[in-house]
Design a protein around this nucleic acid. Structure first.
Length: 800
DNA sequence: GATTTTACGTA
DNA sequence: CGTACGTAAAATCT
């Protein structure tokens, strides 16, 4: 059936979808099916009344199998067949007839028909001119059906619909008042900087640098004192300097004077400040706002790249869409960073999250210092380890090639499938599914290999493959490039996942407040992520001669938090009683033994190792609502035994289940959870178990992440006060690794403990997570310290 | 050549 | 149907 346009002739807003679906086809009404229900929901969230709007589609008939490409000549849907062209002409006439103030292009097909553009992910949220009927404005938004498939797009689309409503009062496109001065000469740039310095009313300055790799050399420098102005100068063209040395020196001298007088705004300042310091030796003394951090605090679940933030915060045209060589790119970045900062500043107040913002801003210098400092690798040990594991790898490969009779790439899932399930005809092993509705996919991962090894005990290849793969993986962590000073460096990312990837708008940004670690662009040495180095590879990270690496751990950190969240008073008491004791003295307060006594009804003294391990695993698994499959896997027991264990534990500790339910209740209210240090997170996934599991882990995980960083900042502040040198080497989520000279170990441990004990409050009850220490000659080998802090009191412990 | 999938390391 | 994170190689798409 042909589906006609619907709505009042005097409507301000016109929604244009793609084509009718099954329900629409039957009822003859646009957006009357599942996508229509999602549209209605979005409109309600945005405060738009559908009956006051025009609703239609580009195509008036349903394509076979709902595939819009049926109406096009080409696969990319850019050359319409005559029927489609006629509908586009019809759409043009409708727009001219009804003259809406704004047209909402729902999805890529509508965007194409109205503007000729294709990429919805780039243009969504921006007000752009309609090319079909010039003079009309269009705002592209994801199609409701796309949102149904990918629920993460929901929240940002609500923001987009609100923007559409704001712009529906008048037909005019937003006025373009921005002035950009790209690629100016030195006198003009110097004059601008001098004007900034002398004008006290311009108190803030946005800075953006473009760099070339390798070396992160500054290619272009952009500045802005207002959302409506941006200026830039090139320092490099290709790799050739544009300015004589003397002139460039003058530029940087003036710049260094300028930044001292202004509140600085940057997007991802940790990088820009880092290279300004590393390459130009210019210190940015007052970073007033990092828009990446502000966005992370205000909207942790949304993308954070400038293009996205611009679409949400500003009324400027999309400036990131053209070719990368667009001259205006850099000055526009600077000006729009300024504009975005003003909106985020208000948002921080509205959402009452400024404390989290200030906290994260305070971490920038710490993370940057750790990145630039790096951590030393002993080249000799590295070579030894590389040789050792290379030998293992080659040996396994030789044996396997002989047994199998041909060469196989064991890193190739495809070849592995052919071997295991084709040649050997072994029972298929499937990957764990996110939902029972998902289709099963074959796997050849380590767990599958171990299972097959158990089924065919007389065939040695499974264990050989496992050993081969282990050596192979390890080599990835060992065979890394070192800096000339034999160091590796990592970029610690305060806002978690990096988001300068513009194509990546579909991924939800999670970031529970924990730092992530990735490859440093400034100093690209090492394996990148330093938070996932396996123990064997840690052996090559040696303490410098005469120095000791100290490991300061938050003890049982997440478990302590969970005991308070669930109101498990027995566990709380045990943590309290064990507080400050030496490691050896903690035995009577072992929560895993406690769990075993409860679970198996055996007296404390008679709990054996297997029972303790069972207690440990089940507690951890149940905290985060793991299923019997995981438990069976972890403990090497059958599914039915695992199920029984879970049932038994539910009887022993019903508080966990109740806590999970209370989290669901809290999510129901507004989908926002707040951790014990006040950090908020909105959960945008589709309502269901995946969402719940993620939410259960949020408060314990993010509280500990924040807690450790509170400590880290406090320790960092002390570094300048103490009369000896402390190097902060690593941050591993619940542990800090400083390195000091041997003679300063005692004082450092005292300092660490003083600054890492930080009381938390839940339900008006105060508690403190304990800290313990290990001393290392390398990152791998550590010796547990036995300190009874009750005996030490306020003094300094005498360890060495 | 760019993007997606698979596998795997840590807390 | 633990979660969180980043990297690399293979597979797949264009």
């Amino acid at each position: 059936m042909r589906v006609e346009l619907e709505g009042p002739p005097d409507a301000d807003i016109m929604f244009v979808g793609e084509a009718p679906g099954e329900t629409e086809d039957k009822l003859g009404k646009p957006f009357s099916g599942r996508a229509g229900r999602t549209l209605n929901n979005l409109l309600a969230q945005a405060g738009i009344a559908r009956y006051q709007c025009i609703v239609t589609n580009v195509a008036k008939e349903r394509p076979p199998a709902n595939r819009i490409s049926y109406f096009f000549e080409d696969k990319k849907c850019t050359i319409p067949k005559p029927k489609m062209q006629a509908w586009v002409n019809e759409l043009k006439e409708d727009i001219e007839l009804y003259k809406p103030n704004i047209i909402v292009a729902l999805g890529a097909t509508a965007l194409w028909a109205l503007t000729g553009e294709k990429k919805i992910s780039i243009f969504r949220g921006y007000i752009i001119p309609c090319s079909l009927v010039p003079g009309v404005k269009v705002i592209p938004i994801y199609h409701p059906q796309a949102i149904n498939y990918d629920w993460k797009l929901y929240f940002q689309s609500v923001l987009d619909f609100r923007k559409a409503l704001r712009h529906s009062k008048t037909p005019e496109l937003p006025e373009v008042k921005q002035i950009y001065r790209p690629n100016v000469n030195l006198p003009e740039f110097l004059a601008y900087m001098e004007e900034c310095i002398t004008n006290p009313e311009w108190d803030r300055l946005a800075i953006d640098v473009e760099t070339v790799q390798p070396g992160s050399h500054i290619e272009e420098l952009g500045l802005s004192h207002s959302p409506d102005f941006g200026i830039s100068i090139f320092l490099l063209k290709g790799r050739i300097p544009t300015l004589p040395e003397k002139d460039e020196l003058l530029l940087w001298q003036t710049f260094a004077r300028l930044v001292k007088t202004k509140k600085i705004i940057m997007q991802n300042g940790a990088y820009d400040i880092g290279i300004l310091w590393y390459n130009q030796h210019i210190l940015i003394p007052d970073l007033y706002m990092d828009t990446l951090i502000a966005a992370h605090v205000c909207w942790p679940e949304l993308p954070r790249d400038l293009g996205f933030l611009g679409s949400v915060c500003l009324n400027v045209p999309p400036w990131k869409s053209g070719s990368a060589k667009n001259e205006l790119y850099n000055p526009a970045d600077a000006a729009n960073t300024f504009g975005i900062s003003e909106v985020l500043d208000l948002e921080l107040s509205t959402q009452k999250v400024r404390h989290t913002f200030n906290f994260e801003m305070g971490l920038i210098p710490v993370a940057l210092m750790m990145q630039l400092q790096g951590i030393k690798v002993d080249r000799e040990t590295q070579t030894e380890l590389k040789e050792k594991w290379n030998t293992v790898m080659v040996e396994m490969k030789t044996q396997l090639d002989t047994i199998i009779g041909r060469e196989i790439n064991f890193n190739s899932p495809k070849q592995m499938q052919e071997l295991l399930y084709g040649d050997l005809k072994l029972p298929a092993q499937y990957k764990r599914r996110k939902s029972v509705r998902d289709k099963r996919t074959l796997t050849t991962d380590a767990a599958a290999l171990r299972k097959l090894a158990g089924m065919v005990p007389d065939n040695p290849i499974f264990n050989l493959i496992l050993d081969y793969k282990k050596a192979n993986t390890l080599l990835r962590f060992l065979d890394v490039k070192l800096s000339p000073e034999s160091r590796v460096h990592t970029s610690y990312n305060i806002t978690g996942a990096s988001s300068d990837d513009e194509e990546d708008t579909k991924k939800t940004k999670r970031s529970f407040g924990r730092w992530s670690s990735s490859k440093s662009i400034i100093l690209p040495f090492g394996s990148g992520n330093l938070q996932n180095i396996p123990p064997e590879a840690r052996k090559m990270y040696l303490a410098e001669p005469g120095w000791t690496i100290i490991q300061a751990d938050l003890i049982q950190a997440e478990a302590v938090v969970v005991s308070h969240l669930t109101g498990n008073t027995k566990m709380q008491q045990m943590f309290k009683d064990a507080f400050g004791l030496a490691n050896k003295e903690r035995k009577p307060y072992d929560i895993h033994v406690l769990k075993a006594t409860e679970l198996f009804g055996v007296p404390w003294e008679e709990v054996n190792k297997v029972q303790r391990k069972t207690g440990k695993v089940i507690r951890h698994a149940r905290n985060y609502s793991a299923g019997p499959g995981v438990l069976a896997n972890r403990l090497g027991i059958t599914m039915s035994d695992a199920k029984k264990l879970i049932v038994a534990d539910e009887r022993v500790d019903p508080s966990l289940g109740l806590w999970h339910l209370s989290i669901q209740e809290e999510l129901k209210r507004n989908r926002v959870l707040t951790n014990l240090l006040g950090r908020k997170h909105r959960f945008l996934d589709r309502w269901g178990d995946t969402l719940f599991r993620s939410a259960y882990s949020y408060i314990p995980q993010s509280t500990i992440g924040d807690l450790l960083n509170v400590s880290l900042r406090k320790v960092y502040d002390k570094l300048l006060e103490v009369p000896f040198e402390v190097k902060l080497l690593l941050q591993l989520h619940d542990a800090l690794y400083p390195m000091v000279r041997n003679e300063n170990v005692n004082e450092t441990i005292k300092l660490l403990r003083d600054n890492m004990l930080h009381p938390l409050t839940y339900n008006n009850q105060e508690f403190t997570i304990d800290v313990d220490f290990k001393l290392h000659t390398s990152w791998a080998e550590g010796e547990e310290l036995e300190i009874n802090w009750k005996e030490v009191g306020d003094g300094i412990p005498k360890i060495i």
